[in-house]
Each structure stands twice: as structure tokens, then as C-alpha cells.
Design a protein around this nucleic acid. Structure first.
Lengths: 239, 239
DNA sequence: CGATAGCTTGAGTAGATTCAAACAGAGTGG
DNA sequence: CCACTCTGTTTGAATCTACTCAAGCTATCG
């Protein structure tokens, strides 16, 4: 059931039938993980990468006082640690935010894929570069955007990323995060996220309640965020 | 004169003589760029990647009000836009901070290298993943570190990155940036950087004046930063 | 020697935090 | 079924970190 991962790849690249077969053959059977579980611990040696098929996960780093910074959110279809294929161990941990369905892909099989399918190598290299591009946009948010723009930008990003894999409508999607999760993405406190969500609601831009985002004014939201989706590299790529 | 780039690669990987020859053969003659020049403009189609041989450059994104976020600093030896090989256009611009010496490497030649030297493909994929790891550490700084810890962490990071290519002593190195440049790296204002540098000086941790960093108390500085170099993946890698 | 870029310091302000308390909803056990 | 707990949300008040505005200083350069 890697369909959702293939959907993500095919949003930007052509994937041939033999390539699809190679990917499907490489994946181990699915596993379920409960919410709030550390799936991958910082520093441990890894011999497989993890594909997220359902649910949400995040990469995070933390400080000794317990403050946590989420560096990227992962949605269904994402390879949450494709970079571990190259890095062998991670500089951060990976946590489930909801109950998740995952499949692992042994690095040995990824090696074989990259040897036999040079185009897939480029596709996966691109995917890790896409993660880096998302990190950069988050650096812009964390360093320069105001609280309201941070939230607006995140809601815009997730609308597109979830839309790519068919998990968002035009102006609404399910987002099973707490206000604390959002705060840890945006470098804010939960309390300030709460107040800022209230402002977004009152300005009739977007509503976030009980795990659902309803965008009331998409253009207005994008304007507050100064959202430019170029960093998500949505155009289809030549083979 | 790609020696410094090879030094950077060899800090973590073995590069064979034929691989070295392939890299050297791929590079175009050197060019000089004056300080404060946009070397690569966001969004433009790129057909070559740029190697920084001397000087400092940065990747940055900005908002309409002119506020700028530097997302990564580049030192000599870095491929400043290796990711453009895969992305084709960048989501950010690249700026020289000092006068720079660069060499470009056409994407066509990088393609040939990746086809003929699978090990180099892994090396360069790793290098783009290293950039992403630096982005993540900066997200932690931007989102959660205090001003003094942000500066401390940056000084620790650069000490190591410059040291790898022989441009740092044990506790001092040249860093030709203004306080405004630092502010744009750290999500602060120049004025607050100034006050925070003063505090670092008074606490006898580090001194930054006239483009030079002198670390008075490395352990103390690393402690303030909670600096853990794991994200720089310094251990040597198996072939 | 004036112009300019960069650094330094002071005073007042603002955006976000901390601390505190109360409320809502879901799940649990007696 | 209701009391209880736990997690998550909401609001107020006081505080603080970092920002803005303003001004003066220093060094360099043509």
C-alpha cells in the first residue's frame, strides 16, 4: 500500500512501471505505531529508512531545558528519514504525532535501487533537497515572520503538501495537531499560539479547531504569510 | 585550485585519484566576485553549480519589508548551490559577503560524474544532506535559543567548519562579517547582536572584533550554546 | 577632510513569555 | 451514571527579551 508515496513522487516526476515495481519490492510489511512515540532516536545507527503511509510525524531537536523545536512536519507519503540512507545516523529524533502506519525500506535495497535505477536516484536526491527547501522556508518563518504570519505560512504549506497526496480539499483539511505541537513548529509558546489563532479567526482568515483547518480567505491568508509556494517545487520535472 | 574543496570532501570521505581528476576536469576556470554581489538570483534557471574557493557567501530569503533571513553561511570549499543540480532553480538567492573566488561546474559535467562515479554521487548527496542538517540546527537556534546562545552556537559551528578546511586555529579564526550579517543569520537586530556580543565579551567567552573571532573559553562557549557537533557529521565514512 | 559604513549606547516600547487560574471534552473506574 | 482525571484550550495580569528610535562615536577611504 505504497500508493500514497508513489502519488507524492508522481506529483513532480514520472515514475515508470519498473521503477514502481522496484520501490514496491523494496518495502517491508507495514507496521503501526501509536501516537507520541519516538520512531527514530537521534544518533542511533540506522539500516533502513521509514516511509510514512498514514498519520503525521515530525523531526525535532531539543535543548536541555526541555524546549523542543520541530524542524519539519511529515505527512502521509513522505520518506521521513530518507536522509538516513546517506547519513547513517540522524542529528535529530523523529516522533509520531498521531497513530501512524509506516513501512520501512532497508538501506541495502535502496542501494540496489540507486544502482539499477539512476533516474530514481535523482528523484530521491530531489526529495531530500525538497526537505532542505522546507527547512529554509521554516528558517525564514522562525527568524523573521511575526506570530500570525508564521501560523498563516504553515497552514498554507500544509494545504499544498496534503493536497498533493489527496488529503486536502481546496480550503480545508484535517490537521490532528495540538496547539503545543504548532508552537513547537513555530518557535512560540502554546499560549501565544492560542491567542494568535484567535486573531486569525477574528480576522476571518482561517479557523483551526478540533484537528481541522478551515480556510475562510485563502488569498488573505497567503497575503498575511507572504506565502510563495515556489519552495515546494510543484512543477513537473523532465525525466 | 580546487584543493580546498577536496579537503572538505576528504574530511569525511575517501576520494580516489580518478575521482579527484574527474572533479578537477569538470570545473570551469576561476572567477572573482566583489563583495555584496548576488551571485545567484532566486528562481533563475541554472545550468551550473558554484564552488566557493575563497571568501564567504550566504543563502538568504527575504520578506517584502526588506527583512532578510540568511539560511546558511558558506565558507571556502563549499558547493554553494549543489542542490541546484537537482532543483534546477533555487528558492532563495545567494550573495557574496566578501570578495570571493569561485569556480562553476556545469550540471552536464555533474551528470557525467554521477553516472561514471557512483561513489561520488553518494558523496555529493551526502553533502546536500549536510546542508539540510545545518539548516535544522539553525531552526533550533532561531526557534528556541536565546540571543547569547544563538551567537555562541554560530561561533562554535564556524570554528569547526573553517577548521575542516584549515581556516581556523584552535580558538581563533577570521570571520569577515558585520554585526548586521550576524543579525540576519540569527533572526535578531543588529543592535541586539551588538549588545549580546558585549555580554559574550564581558563574560569572557568570546570576542568578535574587526572580522576576527577569538574564543577565550571554548568549553564555556559550547556550554552556553549547548553545542553538540554531531549535526556536522565529522566522523570519517566508509567507502 | 568630509562622507560613509559600521559600531555603541540610552530610552522607551512591543511582541511574546511566564505565571496563574479556570473551563471543556474524552476516557476511566467505582 | 457520576465523580475523577487527564489533556488540551482559553483568558488575564505581570514581566521580560528583544525591538525601535535616536544619537553619537570610530575607522576607513576617496
Amino acid at each position: 500500500m505504497l500508493d500514497i508515496h508513489l502519488r507524492k513522487l508522481r506529483a513532480r516526476d514520472e515514475i515508470s512501471a519498473p521503477e514502481e515495481a522496484a520501490i514496491r519490492a523494496a518495502a517491508c510489511p507495514e507496521i503501526r505505531l501509536p501516537a507520541d512515540t519516538i520512531a527514530i532516536r537521534k544518533g542511533e545507527e540506522l539500516a533502513a529508512s521509514t516511509l510514512l503511509l498514514e498519520g503525521m510525524m515530525c523531526r525535532f531537536k531539543d535543548l536541555r531545558n526541555g524546549e523542543r523545536q520541530i524542524t519539519e512536519l511529515h505527512v502521509a507519503g513522505d520518506f521521513v528519514d530518507l536522509h538516513s540512507f546517506s547519513l547513517k545516523r540522524l542529528d535529530h529524533s523523529i516522533l509520531t504525532l498521531t497513530e501512524c502506519r509506516i513501512a520501512t525500506v532497508p538501506h541495502a535495497k535502496l542501494s540496489a535501487i540507486t544502482e539499477q535505477h539512476p533516474h530514481l536516484t535523482r528523484v530521491y536526491w530531489f526529495q531530500t533537497n525538497l526537505d532542505a527547501a522546507i527547512h529554509r522556508e521554516w528558517e525564514l518563518s522562525l527568524g523573521r515572520r511575526t506570530a500570525i504570519a508564521k501560523l498563516a505560512a504553515l497552514f498554507c504549506e500544509l494545504r499544498i503538501r496534503l493536497g498533493i497526496v489527496g488529503l486536502a480539499e481546496e480550503a480545508a483539511y484535517s490537521l490532528p495537531l495540538t496547539q503545543l505541537d504548532l508552537a513547537e513548529c513555530l518557535g512560540l509558546t502554546q499560549i501565544h499560539v492560542n491567542r494568535t489563532l484567535k486573531e486569525l479567526r477574528e480576522r476571518k482568515l482561517v479557523e483551526f479547531r478540533s484537528g481541522r483547518v478551515r480556510i475562510a480567505d485563502l488569498a488573505g491568508l497567503a497575503a498575511v504569510a507572504e506565502f510563495d509556494p515556489a519552495y515546494l517545487y510543484l512543477e513537473r520535472r523532465k525525466r
